[in-house]
Amino acid sequence: MNLTLKVWRQNGPADSGRMVTYQVTDVSPDMSFLEMLDVLNERLILEGDDPVAFDHDCREGICGMCGMVINGVAHGEQRATTTCQLHMRHFEDGATITIEPWRAAPFPVVKDLVVDRSSFDRIIQAGGFISVPAGSAPDAHSVPVKKEDADDAFDAATCIGCGACVAACPNGSASLFTAAKITHLGLLPQGQPERDSRAVAMVEQMDLEGFGGCTNTGECTAVCPKGISLDVITQMNRDYLKAAK
C-alpha cells in the first residue's frame, strides 16, 4: 500500500506547530497503524530528519498510551480499538490520512503527537483510590460482592486512561474517564468509605484542570477503545448529587 500522511509536527510546547505531508510506500495491510508510522520514522531517521514523536508502550491495547486522532476520529474509525490495534487493512491503498494529537487545553502537546496527560493523574490523586490496611492478600471470598456489581465495576475498571473520550468530546469534557474511575471504586465494598468524598473531589479536580462540561453528546463512548458506557456518567452524577446534598 502507498499512503499520503498529513501529520501534525510541533517541536515542543512553545512551537506553534503545523501539518506536514509525507508519502509512505510499501506498507503491508497486516501492519498496525504504529508499525506504519515506524516505517515512516525509519526513513526519516535514515534521511537525517527528525522522526515523528508518538506515544506507545504495550502495543496490545491495554496501556492507553497510543492515542492520536486519525482522520478526525480518536483512535481511528474502527470501533473499540486502540491505535496500536488498528490495522492498515482498514484503509484503502492510495488514501490520505490525517494524524493529529489529542486536542484539549488540559492535554498540552509535548512534541508532535505526544500530549501530557498528567491532568488525568491529578484527577486520580484527588480521590481515585481506596484506603485499606496493607498486608497479605485477603481470602477471595472474605468480602462478598454481588455478581452484577462485580460485572459493572469490572467493566468500568477496563478504562485504560487513554484520553480518547476527551479528544472526541465537542466540549473537551473528561466525564467518561472520571466517571469510569468513580464507578469502578464506588460499586465495590472496598470503595464505600470514601464514596461520597471521592465523587466530589474527583469532579472538582476535573473542573479545576480546565476540562469542559458534559452535555451528554455520547461522542466519548462511541470512540472509547474499551466501550465504557454512558452508564458510568449516570452513576457519577448520582453519587455527586447524593454527596452534594
Partner: peptide, 23 residues
C-alpha cells in the same frame, strides 16, 4: 458551557470531525 468548551479546546482539529455517536 459553550465558553468552557471553547477554553477546553483552544486548538481545533484540522480534519473535519464526523460524529461517531450518530446523533
Amino acid at each position: 458551557l459553550a465558553r468552557r468548551a471553547r477554553r477546553a479546546r483552544p486548538v481545533k482539529y484540522a480534519a473535519r470531525r464526523r460524529s461517531q455517536a450518530g446523533g
